[in-house]
Nucleic acid binder design. Structure first.
Lengths: 335, 335
DNA sequence: AAGAAAATGATTGACGTGTTTCTTTTTCCG
DNA sequence: CGGAAAAAGAAACACGTCAATCATTTTCTT
């Protein structure tokens, strides 16, 4: 039989449907002997519960919360949009997503929210620990996005930031051929785990045998475009030998503006996240490489993982391979 | 109402459930006026049929066929495995996949197969046109994978091969810095559309202003490792100035063997598809870059598209962004 | 062995849609 | 106006599971 039902299982086990159901759904009150017989029948028949029928019956819906920092941050907003778009696309599966601001712990939405799973974007913001505690308190499982967090969580969806850093390092080395150079890393803050990991990854490759590149001490710009512009400008003036820039975090508008003003002979620039700004900068040869973590895919995987958890399964491993964009391989604008 | 049912629609339209059903499923025998009223109600309530309930009711299953060239071709076999694995993962959605050999037109499987949708891997093989005719004949919709095909098909899932070629070109330019060089393209056959597109993409970038690279005439090796090795060996001996190789198709075991034997001072090598061989070669510094079209993702998108078509929807656009792998950013071995 | 407790069986009505059959109402046409 | 045809309604069963209730049987306890 291609698709045995629970009735078939019950028959094969020599018990009633009720008993099979009690075993399957762990309702208790079943003799050990019967449990074994049912489980064996499940094994032998290769029974798998029809999730569609089950969800239909229990009027199941998937209510997910995503705690996403708000504000002027291109990547986060596009991740938010991708999440909402994905939820819309899965409306037939009764998936809904609520975006929450982690920095407002007493958010009304959060008060009333009854969620089946939550996702935390792992920037070490103030409210996040509080949110985690609250979720644990209420027994709501959580995964992390973008950057991992220590603590009890059920899975991580996002890129491997160390690998991303290594990628940047490799690209910088490629761009320098056999020549020497000085690379300036710019990041939001050293206290952010994802930034630190990227920096470490890059450092590893730049320090490897055969490299004639030097990684300078990182500049912290707190993801702010103006600060990015000022600090970077100062650093470039102070050290005329800088041949490469690795922008690890956000605030790249400031970097791009500087490159635009800078004239020819600019350093080789690698940065993260494909946004309208960075895309335009690539096209205009103001920067060289964009490493993108593909918010759309990340959103899809995040919902997959949260759904699996809500269904009581193990979330699938979801390490996203970041995309590398040059001027020449930009994706077509979706029609 | 969050999730209106067809009953709700019927009530809102002031007709019976039967009539609403007749309109929804286009069974005919409904007055134009009623059709309009029902459709308006669907619009206003934002009704969407619950596909799970619908599938449950009609005992729906998704039976897909994939026509995949067999034989000693790492990528195709990993794509095949990925497809089967994906089907297994979606067993709960009643998805099943049958792999067929396009070069055996009288295959027993193919004879008896009743499929809801098919996928054709678009290598211009002999049997493929016949398969397409057969499918059209039977009214089975089809999509293309890996390489597009002209003709009546409902969608394409895979990478943009022209963009992939441009990517290779850009990487080769990067690797040469401002220096000059001669690039040797190696491909299966110029009659294969995907190979041609990749070559064109690379040519475009290598011929762009500022480039000091020359793209040599392509060598055809018909995806065979020994031929790859022989032809490539001959070409490298004939032209000592070759500084880069772009391997567009398969048969890379021959290339890798040659690089291994070749000693130091080898050219910069870009090739396609991450396989155990190419991975090992990257790790051992025998080649430099692998452009991968991610068979697992391709399989997932292919099933998404086929399912959408089987459900009578428009398949989602699925242009996959190829991954670029260096030695430094190889994905971890899945645990 | 009687009674309590535990285990099991039997049955029922959802969930939202598909599908069929049969009846009733409306519309059309000569 | 009468009859046929078209349109609409009503009802039932199915799909596989969940969840609850109630009746029955088995097992355990004293």
């Amino acid at each position: 039989m291609s698709n045995p039902t629970l009735h078939d299982v019950a028959r094969a086990a020599g018990v009633s449907y009720s008993t099979a159901d009690r075993v399957l759904n762990e309702r208790g009150g079943v003799a050990a002997k019967s449990i074994q017989r049912v489980q064996r029948a499940i094994q032998e028949l290769g029974y798998r519960r029809d999730i569609r029928a089950a969800n239909l019956s229990r009027r199941r819906s998937y209510r997910f919360a995503v705690f996403l920092p708000q504000g002027d941050h291109g990547f986060f907003s596009s991740l938010g949009q991708a999440l909402l778009a994905q939820a819309e696309a899965r409306a037939a599966d009764r998936v809904s997503v609520t975006l929450c601001d982690p920095s407002r712990p007493d958010d009304a939405i959060r008060e009333g929210g009854e969620w089946d799973c939550a996702a935390l974007v792992g920037t070490e913001s103030e409210g996040l620990a509080q949110v985690m505690a609250e979720l644990t308190d209420r027994g709501i499982p959580a995964i992390t996005l973008v950057s991992d967090i220590d603590g009890s969580r059920r899975g991580y969806v996002g890129i491997d930031n160390t690998v991303a850093g290594r990628t940047a390092g490799r690209l910088l080395r490629l761009a320098h051929g056999r020549g020497a150079g000085r690379i300036l890393p710019v990041l939001g803050s050293l206290s952010l785990r994802d930034h630190r990991e990227r920096l470490d990854g890059a450092a590893e490759v730049l320090a490897a045998p055969g490299s004639r590149l030097v990684l300078l001490p990182p500049v912290e710009v707190h993801d702010q475009p103006d600060r990015m512009r000022d600090r970077l400008d100062a650093a470039l003036r102070a050290d005329a030998g800088i041949t490469g820039i690795y922008s690890i975090g956000a605030g790249n508008r400031g970097l791009i503006a500087l490159m635009e003003a800078g004239g020819e002979g600019r350093p080789f620039v690698v940065l993260h996240e494909l946004t309208p700004h960075s895309r335009a900068a690539l096209e205009r040869d103001l920067i060289d490489v964009v490493i993108d973590q593909k918010p759309a895919e990340e959103a899809a995987r995040a919902l997959d993982a949260m759904r699996a958890i809500a269904d009581g399964e193990e979330p699938p491993a979801a390490v996203i391979t970041p995309a590398i964009f040059f001027k020449e391989n930009l994706p077509g604008v979706p029609a």
